[in-house]
């Protein structure tokens, strides 16, 4: 048995410890927002947070999640209570096919946690997922907008 917290909920799973966390999330826990792209941590479609760090879950054995706190796109925010990154993504109408977008949003949220006001260079260095529709131009705008939304909410509160 391996236990971890996912989107605020403590869970125990009975699964082979080497199973990639991605498949535990998608197939065992039936949360499909985290995507499979390559299985080799090369595209970032499966990006989630483990203890706040962006992790490519296709190449992260579930046993390493023991005792840790996981966040997936479903736990990032909801339509009623969106995360600033999701709000910015909607406002900039970023997605096209949409498949890679959860991974990008998770990577962005992790970046903004560490660096609330990333420069273009910070974005280039940290946001290294693959998008085939070529939405990078709008993503960059959305990342900056999310940083602004964050800053405004801090100022206002």
């Amino acid at each position: 048995m391996i236990s971890f917290t996912i989107n605020g909920q403590l869970l125990m799973v009975d699964v082979e410890g080497d199973t990639p966390l991605l498949w535990v999330i998608r197939d065992l826990l039936d949360m499909k927002g985290t995507k499979f792209g390559c299985g080799k941590a090369a595209c970032g479609a499966c990006t989630i947070h483990v203890d706040g760090e962006a992790v490519r879950s296709c190449s992260y054995a579930v046993k390493y999640a023991e005792g840790k706190s996981i966040t997936t796109i479903e736990g990032l925010g909801t339509a009623d209570n969106p995360h600033p990154v999701q709000q910015a993504w909607v406002e900039e109408v970023v997605p096209q096919c949409g498949y890679c977008q959860p991974g990008f949003m998770m990577a962005t949220a992790a970046l903004l946690n560490k660096n609330p006001n990333p420069s273009d260079e910070d974005i280039d260095k940290n946001i290294i997922n693959v998008c085939r529709c070529g939405t990078y131009y709008r993503m960059r705008k959305a990342i900056k907008k999310a940083a602004e939304i964050n800053a405004n909410s801090i100022t206002n509160s």
Partner: peptide, 21 residues
Amino acid sequence: IRRVDVEDKVYGTPMFGMDAS
């Protein structure tokens, strides 16, 4: 007009062939 599928695509709604079960 804002894309009609933007929210599903931003909140992780299962919608792709790979998400089917």
